[in-house]
Simulated assay, not measured.
Amino acid sequence: MNSNAVRTFVDDRLETYIAELKSLVEHESPSRDKGRLDLLAGAIADRWEGLGGNVERIANDAGGDHLVGRFFEAAPGPPALVVGHFDTVWPVGTLARLPLRRDGGRLFGPGVYDMKTSLILVAGVLEAFAALGLRPARPITVLFTSDEEVGSKTSRTRIEALARESAHALILEPPLADGSLKTARKGVGRFTLTVEGKAAHAGVAPELGASAIVELAHQVLKVAALNDPAAGTTLNVGLIEGGTTPNVVPARASAEIDARAVTIAGAEAVEKALLGLSAVTPGTRVTVEGGFNRPPMERSPAVAELFAKARRVGEGLGLALTEGSTGGGSDGNFTAAVGTPTLDGLGAAGGGAHADDEHIEIGSIPERAALLAALLLEI
């Protein structure tokens, strides 16, 4: 099987790819540091051009530039879209505290799992295709963005546009803890609830005031009542602020809300409920701003069919692929929401995303490269 040859190719060159991965990890690239992101984008673009790609660098004044690489453009049919990101949650200087280290079969470092190893998977597969004379079933479009960790605000439009013109989307985010691919993700919403009241002296004339904090307490309970775990709908008031000093009836208070929903209909219902909240306490006013910045990735029939194909492809590699869902969001939420069959969690095995013990299982690199190659060759 050709994809088994890809596994052997990557495995034989594994130390070379680990050295390349170390270089990527040691180039710190937090989501809001345009200078560092753009330098990394340039290095990735050079790498892709060396692999025969037609590379488009998408200028982004609001953050780091994004990259689109097009490969095998003469192949028939709409392309397979491969999606990843090269920004991380880690601030500059993290390497001084958490230096890259290798411990047995694991490589530890900030951003190694989420998700710079996926850049190595792309490079390994494309190099193997060239060396082995393999051609994919359709053209390949590779999109790596610079702002996934902060909501993909500047890349969303391009993600959705590329998804609409693609046969399917393969998302190189990490898999579930047990290695399962992701065929469903919750949608993610962010809302700010603000209460305006009326200040007054708490000792002399409290009756002249209207407490924004008391009203906020009522609203927090209303938000909590919207939770429906059985339906996969969860809301969390994660931050509250209000008041000035203890002897003043507070004139203002606010809350930051995280909302998650399994279906688009569920997300719409939550959004409608939150935006419809009204005040209970006389003399106060409630306003809610925000919305779902990532729609749910639903396990549609098209997604289920794509996974079934992937499972059959995996069998040829000796892999028993399984699927699952997660409450976190990714750019796969966008590709699925526009109707493009999407398969997520195709990155390397490991753990500790966004945590001090972030790591990959080095031995999973050839296996995941072979899986990605098989999907590109056979679907």
Score class of each variant (00 low, 15 high):
358 E>Q: 06
177 A>Y: 02
30 P>T: 10
17 Y>A: 03
163 A>R: 07
359 H>F: 13
259 A>I: 00
377 L>S: 01
106 R>T: 09
207 E>S: 05
84 G>A: 12
208 L>N: 13
161 A>S: 14
198 K>L: 15
214 V>I: 14
167 A>E: 15
44 I>N: 07
308 A>M: 02
177 A>C: 01
285 R>Y: 01
2 N>S: 14
315 E>K: 05
68 V>D: 09
176 L>C: 06
5 A>P: 06
83 V>T: 14
125 V>D: 04
156 R>T: 11
291 G>E: 03
378 E>I: 05
89 V>F: 08
163 A>H: 08
58 I>T: 09
134 L>W: 09
120 I>E: 06
257 I>N: 06
6 V>D: 05
237 V>T: 13
231 A>G: 02
158 R>H: 14
271 E>M: 01
39 L>N: 13
202 A>T: 05
50 G>I: 12
266 G>H: 01
94 T>H: 05
85 H>F: 07
45 A>T: 08
29 S>D: 12
303 V>K: 03
240 I>R: 05
74 A>F: 04
362 I>T: 10
93 G>S: 13
111 G>Y: 12
245 T>K: 14
311 R>F: 02
239 L>G: 01
38 D>Y: 08
140 I>A: 01
48 W>R: 10
198 K>F: 05
186 K>R: 15
60 N>S: 12
13 R>Y: 08
348 A>K: 04
48 W>F: 15
179 G>P: 04
254 S>W: 06
267 A>E: 00
110 P>C: 12
54 N>D: 15
34 K>L: 06
261 A>G: 01
379 I>K: 01
326 T>Y: 02
108 F>C: 03
326 T>N: 03
164 R>Y: 05
25 V>H: 08
367 E>T: 15
206 P>S: 07
265 A>P: 04
248 V>H: 03
70 R>S: 15
240 I>G: 10
91 P>L: 09
77 G>S: 10
205 A>C: 10
292 F>N: 00
374 A>N: 02
275 L>K: 08
166 S>Q: 04
109 G>A: 07
236 N>H: 14
289 E>A: 15
88 T>F: 03
283 G>I: 04
45 A>R: 13
379 I>W: 06
250 P>Q: 09
79 P>W: 08
277 L>Y: 10
194 T>V: 14
33 D>V: 05
64 G>Q: 04
44 I>Q: 08
56 E>P: 00
203 G>M: 08
361 E>I: 12
22 K>A: 07
254 S>E: 13
155 S>C: 06
6 V>Y: 09
78 P>T: 14
158 R>P: 04
198 K>P: 00
262 V>D: 02
276 G>I: 05
316 G>V: 00
184 A>P: 03
26 E>C: 14
180 S>V: 00
346 L>K: 03
212 A>Q: 10
363 G>K: 07
147 D>W: 14
299 R>H: 07
218 H>W: 13
165 E>N: 04
191 F>C: 11
224 A>H: 15
195 V>M: 13
56 E>V: 13
144 F>T: 15
121 L>G: 00
198 K>W: 02
9 F>K: 11
363 G>I: 09
48 W>Y: 15
230 A>Y: 01
49 E>I: 02
185 R>T: 09
306 L>E: 01
218 H>M: 11
341 P>I: 08
207 E>Q: 15
169 A>T: 02
377 L>R: 02
107 L>T: 04
306 L>T: 00
345 G>I: 04
288 V>E: 03
330 S>F: 04
325 S>Q: 12
366 P>N: 11
248 V>T: 15
336 A>C: 12
259 A>D: 00
42 G>P: 08
